[in-house]
Amino acid sequence: MTEVRYQPGGWFGLVSNSGLVLLPDQLSEDQLLAVWTTLEEGSGLAGILDALTTAFGLRLSSVPSFAIAIFDDRDLRIAVRGEVFVDIVERIDGQDVASELSGEAVTTWTEKAVRSPVSVSVRIEPEPGPLSPTLPISQGVVLASWMTATFYGALDDGHNDWDDEERTDEPEHDRTEDDYDGATMTAAQLRAMQQPVADSRADALPPASTARIDVSTGESFRLDGPIIIGRRPQALRVAPDEIPKLVSVPSPEQDISRSHLEIRVEGEEVVVRDLDTVNGSVLRRQGSAPSQLESGGSTRVLSNDVIDIGDGVSVTFVDLP
């Protein structure tokens, strides 16, 4: 899941379900729409760069400043040109690491690929400061000076898109522009000037996970991170990337413990743990007799497994990998 917020301002802020782009107001409507269409098509960073360089007649000096953050293959790919700034927080070796990227003092643009992004901000103010963009947007074009996307859940588990929707395959962008002078170049040439930023991963992506739990109270939750279910669930001493989703369920008889059942995604497996509860949890699996979950121990669950946590509340596992 991704949440995008922005600070109103004078630039064009484009937000689609695959990424965001910040462009100066000097763009004509046609130019803006060309970029927007490409962004909506999900053509990746190359597509956007192509649209931008095409819209400005392939003359490098005429290409405006920009900041782009877009999911491309498995990575969040970022490109920034001119005096525009990008703040990135990513998970590296078990740490949240912040960095800043800008296109200042670079002839073309600066690129970076981020494998495990936590958040990305694009802004025109040189000072990052503790300002926080406040207005929400899910998709569209706004006038903005600052946009922030925050990513929730396990993005490095095959999620390759803002919202895990099907992406169209990236089209080829082989342009054949022959009649240009030495000062201009094709988008492909421009890209070739950039140092490679990451290995290209051409192998097929795993399909976006649709694994979820259905709780008997009627709610469903995607399994994109840890979940704790209980009467009054809490999380104790967790790392930043392990902050669980807390799901409270009614238990008029106080049969269910405050924090009762923990659900974790471990690679391709989904694992549950009864959190040392007073009344325990029961696993119902087709073809097997119901069994009490070992208190405090981890158990792998499969699709269609049901766990009964008491007071008539059960959790059904759906579409597990």
Partner: peptide
Amino acid sequence: DPDFWLLP
């Protein structure tokens, strides 16, 4: 490496 707690 901060630690977090969420307490009702």
